Amino acid sequence: MTHDDAPPLADLMPWSVAPPRLGRGWPAAPDPASLKARWDALLKAEGPDREALLEPTRARSLHTAVGKLPGGAGGTEKLARASGPCPEPVRVLRAPFDEQWLIPDHRLIDAARPELWRVADARQTFVVETPDAPAPLLATALPPLFGPGRIRPFHRRPGGTEPNLAPGLLDHLAVRLGTRPDPLDVLAWTVTAARPGPVVPLTADPGVWARGVALGHRALWLMRRDGERPKLPGGRRPYVRAPLPPRPLTLRYDREEEALYLDEGRIAPVPPAAWDTETGGTRVLERWFTARTAEAGPGTLAAIRPAHWPQSWTSELLELITVLALLAEVRSTAAGLPPAAPITASELHDAGVLPPPAATRRPASVLDPHEEGPEGQLALI
């Protein structure tokens, strides 16, 4: 698809949010048990020791008063007086394709972006700009905790309602395509057709549209998965061919064998496309491995981690290999979509679809349920 005069993503999906910023690494981890142990260690410490373990910043200290994270279980009393069990960790996307866990406590997060958490639920899809990746967009069902690209929730309200699309876009596509697309079809097209910018070439050719939408739904399923495990072409799946050591330290790839080695442990088959997938100039698999094996500073909460490589990490790695390989296939096929009957940004401007109203660039008013403010006060939102 050509992207000459293609509509900007920022106009087609007007509402966006800056990426959250943790401010400290330890409230997120690849396993939830470590997070609970870190929380317990923080609360067992007192005074200056607790302050040092927190790793305070200008935005967060033991004495910062903040409201509860929407949907989170954290308290609102100042951390200097905090007690009780760890808020139940929640699943997040810590980096592209790296699913981890987070203590959902607003007192631990420098810039949580509450507007993201208000609309986070099982029906939400977050579209993340990934300028230094093979594809300019990544979609996830999990709250994303990485930058630098902006995040565009596809639904402006909880429950999968009010798509984050320029008003009038669906009507215009209905006229040009001869049938009204479902909002999720527009999301699928966007994920697969987006080009650097990011811009989203649109087409009025029903055949090209249908092929792009089908590829996009495949990509969305691979990035969301919803508990299902994909298979490589021919029904293949990577397996552990030689047992992984208790604490692997090195990762290497043998292209001829299509095998991934974690020290002497061996996983195969690993298609080259999975190993070669990069974001931000780093291989996804290498960054994923480093996040689970890099040593943290002694005496820090981040140093609290599993003593041995959990079986769950192996399962996640096998699934990640499959997902990366299959997404590479989708990208390759999508790149071959022919440019046909483009719907340009100029056309959408002439039709009054663009620019979108200023109000659509702001979050919707989500008034229910009530949120708890600092020190237990009722928050007004």
Rank of each mutant, 00 (worst) to 15 (best):
D5M: 06
D5W: 05
P7W: 04
A10G: 01
D11S: 10
W15P: 00
V17W: 03
S34W: 02
L35I: 11
K36P: 00
R38D: 09
W39H: 12
L42Y: 01
P48R: 11
R58Q: 13
A59D: 02
A59K: 05
A59C: 00
R60Y: 03
T64Y: 08
A65M: 08
G67W: 04
L79Y: 01
S83W: 01
P85Y: 08
P85T: 12
C86W: 09
V90H: 01
R91I: 05
V92M: 06
Q100P: 00
L102I: 12
L102Q: 06
R107E: 09
I109V: 12
E115G: 01
L116V: 05
A120W: 12
D121L: 06
A122M: 09
A122K: 09
Q124L: 07
Q124C: 04
Q124M: 03
Q124T: 05
E129F: 02
A133P: 03
A133K: 04
L137D: 04
L142M: 09
P143Q: 07
P144Q: 05
P148R: 01
I151A: 00
H155T: 06
T161A: 14
N164G: 07
A166Q: 09
D182G: 00
D185Q: 12
T192L: 02
A194W: 03
P198W: 06
V199A: 15
V200I: 12
P206C: 00
A210N: 04
R211D: 13
G212K: 10
A214T: 13
H217S: 04
H217D: 08
R224N: 11
L232D: 10
R241V: 12
P243L: 02
P246G: 01
E258W: 07
Y261E: 13
G265H: 05
G265Y: 09
G265W: 09
R266G: 05
P269W: 04
P271H: 02
A273I: 01
A274G: 07
W275I: 13
E278M: 11
T279C: 12
G280H: 09
G280T: 13
V284G: 01
V284W: 02
L285E: 11
W288R: 11
F289K: 10
A291I: 03
E295W: 03
P298D: 13
G299N: 07
G299W: 08
G299S: 09
S312R: 14
T314Q: 05
L318E: 08
L327A: 03
R331D: 15
G336C: 03
L337D: 11
A340L: 12
A341D: 15
P342F: 05
V353G: 00
A358D: 14
R361V: 02
A364W: 12
S365L: 15
S365E: 14
H370D: 11
E372T: 14
G373R: 03
E375D: 14
E375Q: 11
A379T: 05
L380Q: 13
